[in-house]
Design a protein around this nucleic acid. Structure first.
Lengths: 190, 190
DNA sequence: CCTGATGGCTAATTATCTTAGCCATCATGC
DNA sequence: GCATGATGGCTAAGATAATTAGCCATCAGG
């Protein structure tokens, strides 16, 4: 090889991820990223096309991270427990990396536009659990119900929109219980 | 008064709103806004503090718009219909002004906040309808369930995350039906 | 020992936000 | 009718960020 590389794409993406959580999308400047990996900003362009592409890579890394956790959380045989574990995992991720989560959800003001095809791929194992409750017919509908609720709840939680007081964790559990009950109601009712 | 003003804050905010929907947050440059209202960009600073503040005003206008629609949608006596009408209104708004909706959903804790009053007002009628199904004890939990689901569904819909196929409108109706059923299940079950 | 691809650098361009400072206007009070 | 001062416009200029252009050092391989 030529001149020994002082950094690489992974390090750059990692630095960008860190900056994202520290200061939001605005903090992810090419200069800040460059400084963190120990080069000058123009050198970054030898590794990523531009800032936009870098943010896309950050989103991709976040989705991969989420997938990894989701895979790790897979396990419980019981459908109800499985669903619970998965939405809890989603919530945990969102709390640990709120800005990355917002970026993945597509609700970040300056974020890259929906690159989220894989967002729902990570939900595939959820489909199986849901199908046990709804039957195959409405597995997709049911998964969408659960994921929409979880993401909506998390979004409002992170945005601080839940300020009418009350017990937030209680609302989460209550909502989850009702929702999982509802998944099976279709079958029971016919 | 002095020199006749060639524009005013409302016109500026309106222009910013239009630009937002046309090209996203990035398109809301001071220059573009200025051009649209017929002045040079520095003149905007006689009406708004800076770009950040302008975006805050846009969010505020969006919230007000949403509240107004929500108020107009109030009416149906039947709790189920009322809830349906309100989430449909939310979805309609999100479809008409997707970027504004995302901005409202994405507001960071440190960012602009809708006033507690307006937020509470727009939620009050939903609370009433939900309370009819859940009883007063879980009205707030129930409202959170519904709003979280609706916003989450809309977010995923707008982000294009719903590309596993299937009937989206059907999923919306199915989810809504299950959810409203679930609101009452607590009572029935004891 | 050439050679060329790689990855770093400096310098410069462009776009944008923002501030500084100037000037015209016109409602008001004399 | 005329001085006046606050208002809202303008041009010029400074700061910050993304990006491009073009140069140079390194080192694997022939």
């Amino acid at each position: 090889m030529p001149t020994p590389a002082r950094t690489d794409r992974d390090a750059i993406v990692a630095a960008a991820c860190a900056l994202l959580e520290e200061g939001g999308t605005d903090a992810v400047t090419m200069q800040a990223v460059a400084e963190r990996v120990g080069v000058r900003s123009p050198s970054l362009y030898k590794h990523v096309a531009n800032r936009r592409a870098l943010l896309d890579l950050v989103v991709g890394a976040a989705v991969a991270d989420l997938d990894a956790r989701s895979g790790a959380a897979r396990g419980p045989e019981d459908a109800r427990r499985s669903i619970t574990a998965q939405v809890e995992g989603l919530r945990r991720f969102a709390r640990e990396r709120p800005r990355a989560w917002a970026l993945v959800m597509g609700i970040a003001p300056d974020g890259p536009q929906p690159t989220t095809e894989s967002a729902e791929a990570s939900v595939r194992s959820l489909l199986e659990a849901v199908a046990e409750l709804t039957g195959p017919e409405h597995a997709l509908d049911g998964a969408r119900l659960v994921v929409a609720w979880a993401n909506g709840f998390i979004a409002m939680e992170l945005a601080g929109a839940h300020r009418l007081g009350g017990d937030l964790d209680g609302a989460w559990r209550w909502g989850l219980d009702r929702m999982v009950d509802a998944l099976g109601s279709d079958r029971a009712a016919g």
